[in-house]
Every structure is written in structure tokens, then in C-alpha cells.
């Protein structure tokens, strides 16, 4: 098991608001780590900082031993961190397979001049990307929808397509932001089986945010709980389930 991601004392402030406050998190390869907490706890913000969409105010993030704090999003993505989005951000007007192929752009070896002339590495690379994308779509059960437009898919399939797209980046770490939101119980349990298998087959690390507690408890090896940007618990699922602070954070309002 290799350490992939290591976050130390991460803090993010928006104006006066403190979205994340001294967060520490480690994700290793072949490990599924959950990041949970009530609404507005700063989970998505943490993902946005890791993937370079937002700059942190303080703290240090390393990936495979190299510091990536504040690096541009494409650089971080190419170093091997892929993600999905809470509010599904597909390229709506592109076909399903094109959505996946876009993520393979960083593996393209041909120059734009070769693309225009259409020889050499162009044909080979395009065939490779198309084949790989089709494989990923088959894996997610979307293989028959290749030519549909992304925004014509039903909600659940859009979530799956986002995951196929993330995997096309050939990442070492995948961050899933509410992957089972909007799925029915059958789909959710299928999805749980899927990511457990994915972890076994590929040894990639997975970080995930979700509000479906039984799903999170079911798939995660370790769970971090944060509330109002502050970290309140860390441990294996059954420790978290019985943690008083966690119960209070979730039920405290009552």
C-alpha cells in the first residue's frame, strides 16, 4: 500500500467565512476513504482545493510525495487525480463517448499538425482512445449509449458517465462527490459492489463524499467527519457510527 494523498493543516477562507479549517487527510492506494459531515461542512470545498479549482489559504497537499498545493487544475489532474462533481458537470452537448474521450486528451501523443494531416500517431492514438473509452463505458454499463448526447441520459446514467470519464484519465486517485445521490437502493448497492471491485482490480485510491450513510459505512475503509470546516472524527466505520461527537453533529439540532 502506497500513500497517495497527504493533506496537512489545510484551511480555506472565503472573505471572512472559514470553509475548511486545519483539515488533515491521508488516502492510500487500494483504500476507500469517506469524507462526511452535515451540509456546509466544507467537504466539496476540500475536493475543490485538492483538485486545484480553489486555492487554499493555508496548508500543504502532497500527492505521491510531491507537493501539489495551489497548482493549476490541469496539472493536478494529469498527475493522477480525477474527480466527479456533486452537481454533475458533463459536456452536455457532446456524445457519451466523446465525454469519456475528452479525459484521455492528456494521453494523446500527436500534435495538432498531425491531427490535421491525419497520419502517424494520429490514427493509432485515436483508435486506442476510442477503444479504451468504449471499454470504460461497457464497464459502467453504458456501452450501448455511446452515440447519445450526454444531457439526454437519465440522471443515474449521467453519474456513471462522470465516473467513466474520471477513469479515462487513468488516475491513481479518484474523488467522487456524492456518487449515489439520486440513485435508488438497487442502483446504490450495485454501485457499492462496483467500487469495491474497482478497488480490487486496479488498486486505485478512492475518496468519496456522500450523505447516504449506509452506503458510506458499507464501502469505506476509513471515514473522516467534518463539521463547519472543522474535523471532528476519524476512524473505521463502526467507530464513527458510535462516535458521540458525530451523532451530535448530525442530530445536534434536535
Amino acid at each position: 500500500m502506497i500513500n497517495l494523498l497527504n493533506i496537512q493543516e489545510l484551511a480555506v477562507h472565503f472573505g471572512g467565512l472559514c470553509a475548511v479549517n486545519s483539515l488533515n487527510l491521508r488516502i492510500n492506494s487500494s483504500e476507500i476513504v469517506g469524507l462526511i459531515g452535515p451540509n456546509g461542512a466544507g467537504k466539496t470545498t476540500a475536493f475543490n482545493v485538492i483538485t486545484g479549482i480553489i486555492r487554499p489559504t493555508k496548508g500543504k497537499i502532497t500527492f505521491l510525495g510531491r507537493e501539489i498545493t495551489g497548482k493549476p487544475a490541469p496539472v493536478i489532474a494529469r498527475s493522477g487525480i480525477a474527480r466527479t462533481f456533486q452537481n454533475i458537470r458533463l459536456y452536455d452537448d457532446l456524445s457519451v463517448i466523446e465525454n469519456v474521450m475528452v479525459a484521455a486528451h492528456s494521453s494523446v501523443s500527436y500534435s495538432f499538425a498531425e491531427a490535421i494531416l491525419g497520419f502517424g500517431r494520429f490514427t493509432r492514438d485515436e483508435a486506442r482512445i476510442r477503444k479504451r473509452s468504449q471499454e470504460l463505458l461497457d464497464l459502467m454499463g453504458l456501452g450501448h449509449l455511446t452515440r447519445e448526447k450526454a444531457n439526454s441520459l437519465p440522471y443515474g446514467s449521467q453519474r456513471k458517465l462522470e465516473i467513466a470519464r474520471a477513469l479515462a484519465l487513468e488516475p491513481k486517485l479518484v474523488l467522487l462527490d456524492e456518487p449515489v445521490a439520486g440513485m435508488n437502493p438497487t442502483e446504490t448497492s450495485d454501485f457499492a459492489k462496483f467500487i469495491i471491485k474497482l478497488r480490487q482490480d486496479t488498486s486505485i485510491g478512492i475518496g468519496l463524499i456522500d450523505h447516504d450513510m449506509s452506503f458510506v459505512m458499507n464501502v469505506c475503509d476509513k471515514i473522516k467527519v467534518i463539521d463547519h470546516g472543522i474535523e471532528i472524527a476519524w476512524g473505521v466505520p463502526h467507530e464513527i457510527r458510535n462516535n458521540k461527537k458525530v451523532i451530535k453533529a448530525y442530530l445536534g439540532e434536535n
Partner: peptide, 12 residues
Amino acid sequence: EDETAAMAMGIN
């Protein structure tokens, strides 16, 4: 279509 999502997929 979505600049942020493009960058998150490694596109400069």
C-alpha cells in the same frame, strides 16, 4: 461546455 470540468480532466 464546461471549462472547470475540462480543466479537472487535465485539459489546459
